[in-house]
Amino acid sequence: MDKEPITKILQVNNQIDELARVAEFLEELGDDWELPMPLVLSLNLVLEEALTNTILYGFDDENQHTITVGFSFDGEILGITLMDDGHEYDPTLKEDPDITLAAEDRQIGGLGIFLIKKTMDTVIYQRKENKNYLILTKKIKS
């Protein structure tokens, strides 16, 4: 498909209560781009996991930071790029949890990045000019 992609940008402060605004933004995006509701909820999950990590652990000071989230859709591939100016952190290096373990052996937590990897088709990390870029894509079945 050679369609010119449609794009949209969301800027998020490094505060957890911003996640409510992210959910609202995604609902609007889903309406505008005619995305099915289950997909919108999946994208909400991906963004919540990525943003929660960055907001809670990504910054070494108490200052306000802005995380920029770019969305693009060409009718086939949906792309999301998150950019922040926190310390260098490559989430793709995090080891996957062992999901075959019994409840008593399962560790509490550690599922966030794994859910991102399982939900999206590609997850790429880049560090450029002191910024973290997390580049995600998902092929949308039509």
């Binding site: 909820l41 999950l45 996991e49 929660t52 509490i108 937590g109 599922l111 966030g112």
Partner: peptide, 13 residues
């Protein structure tokens, strides 16, 4: 209608 890893964490606890 929605759960994230924070919710899954509580289920496991």
């Amino acid at each position: 209608n929605y759960i994230s890893s924070s919710g899954l964490r509580v289920f496991l606890i």
